[in-house]
Design a protein around this nucleic acid. Structure first.
Length: 411
RNA sequence: GCGGACGUAGCUCAGCUGGUAGAGCGCCAGGUUGUGGUCUUGGAUGUCACGGGUUCGAGCCCCGUCGUUCGCCCCA
């Protein structure tokens, strides 16, 4: 194959797939606006430090999975692997830490150097909302409710389940980590190799292991509940109350964990069984240290991100492209009149198309193929009488109609 | 980074124990020079993913590469 192909892990969005993709974004944008979120857009690449900061050196993430390059000025830059870090950076860069909270909606491409799988690409697209600068559990509940609302509007809510957990505050989490490490060390001989490695690097992740043997051990591992401080417990209780009021059903899943230090309290995922190994459709939680990492003040935040590709796959069908009206002149003399009609329909908000060339038969074929709802046919005799032939392409009925009445007939 | 499956026309796929490439759909043109969808007649299209090897001969067998896909690892 010598013709250029899209590079590994990237793909073209055309036709049905494009319509699905943009339908997800438009739906999310509309619903987020109902909840009072403003849309932001930040650069697609940042100084590498914006993403590397706060990730620590615990995982493969920084070393293996970022698209990092040196530009001509010698600076290390990285294609954003997620939206949140850039949003937090923008908050600080623009002095908005003085006007909190900020409620942000975001949509755009992200980049991770990973092995492509179903619903996992190197250039992928996310919708994302964040509330920056609120420590109220009401913010958590609203963020989740907004996500749930979007899933409902997309028609995928019935295929997903909200799984909810709390990581508690720092004191709770430190206690939990210590409890886990001591429990797993007691079962070290029974753990998989992968999990023994996790125990060193990122003990919370053992809880998330897919290995059968590990799962049996994890089933009896201590849960966060026994380690929660009083305020952390109260926060989680309040969140669940609010969610009930918002009418969002959820299931407690103590296995949802987050490895990085700046996560706290709420952690959640909307999951589905319909996408193989990539079951998470929308995931998020509370984080408290990221804005500080960008040089701002301590700022508690809550948000989620959802993969547009995965949502598109779950969606039954994209709404069809709007049907247009095909304007078909017969003979060169009719073309000018046809253009005038096209412009008058468009001015009235009616989608209208005129082919650039072709005889009547070909233009009719094209009108049919593109799903036009009606054809307007005009030749010399029609022009002379101020009429056109208006043909309904669904019913096949055709009648002579005065030009002046077209907009009213097609509205 | 690791493992399995797959790669033939624009699309979906067939192709026998190795003998030199096919179907359906779509596309183009005619039947119909002012009427689409249905019907009908005809037509075009392939470096058989790429590179090497075995063979008189490779779409088919062997090796490598690339890509797709499913899973593992990872998942900010």
């Amino acid at each position: 194959m010598s013709t250029p192909q899209p590079v590994r892990g990237t793909r073209d969005l055309i036709g049905e797939e494009a319509r699905r993709h943009f339908h997800v974004i438009e739906t999310a944008r509309r619903v987020a606006a109902l909840y009072g979120y403003d849309e932001w857009s930040t650069p697609i690449f940042e100084e590498t430090g914006v993403f590397a900061r706060g990730l620590g050196d615990t995982s493969d993430v920084v070393t293996k999975e970022m698209y990092t390059f040196t530009d001509r000025g010698g600076d290390s830059l990285t294609l954003r692997p997620e939206a949140t870090a850039g949003v937090c950076r923008a908050l600080v860069s623009n002095g908005l830490t003085q006007s909190l909270p900020q409620k942000i909606f975001y949509a755009g491409p992200m980049f991770r150097y990973e092995r492509p799988q179903k619903g996992r690409y190197r250039q992928f697209h996310q919708i994302d909302i964040e509330v920056l600068g609120s420590d109220s559990p009401l913010a958590d509940a609203e963020v989740i409710a907004c996500g749930w609302h979007i899933l409902q509007e997309l028609g995928v809510a019935q295929d997903t389940v909200l799984e909810l957990n709390t990581l508690g505050d720092k004191t709770s989490r430190d206690a939990y980590r210590a409890a886990l490490v001591s429990y797993f060390l007691g079962h070290k001989d029974e753990l998989s190799e992968d999990s023994i490695a996790r125990l060193e690097r990122n003990p919370l992740r053992v809880v998330d292991s897919k290995d059968e043997g590990d799962r049996r051990i994890v089933a009896h591992a201590p849960t966060i509940d026994g380690c929660l401080t009083e305020p952390a417990y109260a926060f989680f209780e309040k969140l669940q109350e609010h969610l009930a009021r918002f009418g969002v059903p959820f299931r407690r899943n103590p296995r949802i964990v987050r490895g990085l230090d700046y996560y706290s309290h709420t952690a959640f995922e909307f999951v589905t069984t319909r996408l193989g190994a990539q079951g998470t459709v929308m995931g998020g939680g509370r984080y408290e240290g990221l804005v500080e990492e960008m040089g701002g003040p301590h700022t508690p935040c809550i948000g989620w991100a959802a993969g547009i590709e995965r949502l598109s796959m779950l969606m039954a069908a994209a709404p069809p492209a709007p049907a247009s009206v095909a304007i078909i002149p017969v003979g060169d003399a009719a073309e000018a009149a046809a253009l005038d009609i096209a412009q008058s329909l468009r001015a009235a908000g009616i989608r209208a198309e005129m082919a650039y060339r072709g005889n009547l038969k070909r233009r009719m074929e094209r009108a049919n193929r593109t799903g036009a709802r009606a054809a307007i046919i005009l030749g010399e005799s029609e022009i002379a009488g101020g009429l056109v032939q208006l043909k309904d392409l669904v019913s096949g009925e055709q009648a002579a109609v005065p030009v002046a009445e077209l907009v009213r007939r097609l509205k």
